[in-house]
């Protein structure tokens, strides 16, 4: 009788612990799916039409590739590698869960234009560096250290979710009048047939200061 009670107590403790662990691993909350007409585009178009004398907005750094990215709100501090394109024209992705990739076909972080960093949400059984990217809020900081030793400090302006087959190429890769940053990972449902997530999470940020 006592043995059964002990077993029940152990099971209760184990069950609660397991649920706590599950809660710890729960998927990050995600923003609702947006349509490709992002507010980021409208904003930059509006401001570039404004002043003729100053056609660009904010601080701009010269070209220098990124080496490290820090996102205090997500406790992220990771090395950055270069990413090109796959033979099919899609963007390469990092070969491990932790390293963050900088897309070399776009400007460097801190220079005029959209710099693009991609990281896994999960990969080969491990949570990726960008596992909780969808929980970033406008105002959160993203710090990118560059080869020239300068750290470009960005603040998040928007976090959106898009269906991959309606990826907003213009909003993410298109022309902007300031030094911008886009952080990309996966989200939405997982399609077990293709082995891919159906959506991408994109966090948009703007250069605020340099260190």
């Amino acid at each position: 009788m006592i043995r059964a009670r002990v077993l029940a107590a152990v099971l209760v403790v184990a069950g609660v612990a397991a649920i706590a662990v599950g809660h710890h691993y729960r998927p990050a909350a995600e923003p609702p799916r947006s349509m490709p007409s992002s507010p980021a585009v409208a904003r930059s178009a509006a401001s570039s039409a404004a002043a003729a004398s100053a056609l660009t907005r904010g601080d701009l750094l010269p070209t220098s590739p990124p080496t490290r990215v820090r996102i205090p709100a997500l406790r992220v501090d990771e090395a950055v590698t270069g990413l090109g394109q796959n033979p099919d024209g899609s963007m390469q992705v990092p070969t491990d869960a932790h390293t963050v990739g900088w897309y070399t076909g776009a400007p460097t972080p801190g220079a005029l234009g959209p710099a693009v960093l991609a990281g896994h949400v999960n990969y080969k059984g491990a949570d990726g560096t960008f596992a909780r990217l969808s929980t970033l809020h406008p105002g959160d900081q993203v710090e990118v250290t560059r080869q020239d030793g300068i750290t470009a400090v960005f603040t998040v302006t928007d976090v959106d979710r898009y269906a991959k087959d309606r990826f907003p190429a213009t909003a993410v890769y298109g022309a902007i009048d300031h030094a911008g940053l886009r952080l990309i990972t996966c989200g939405g449902d997982f399609d077990t047939r293709t082995g891919h997530y159906t959506d991408n999470i994109v966090a948009y940020a703007e250069l605020r200061s340099t260190e």
Binding site: Y103, V121, A175
Partner: peptide, 22 residues
């Protein structure tokens, strides 16, 4: 100069996850 964009735009979305911890 009024703006800058990616020099070559990748096709489609980005395959940043294999669902392994989902």
């Amino acid at each position: 100069v009024s703006g800058a964009a990616a020099g070559s735009v990748p096709v489609g979305g980005v395959a940043t996850g294999d669902g392994s911890t989902r």
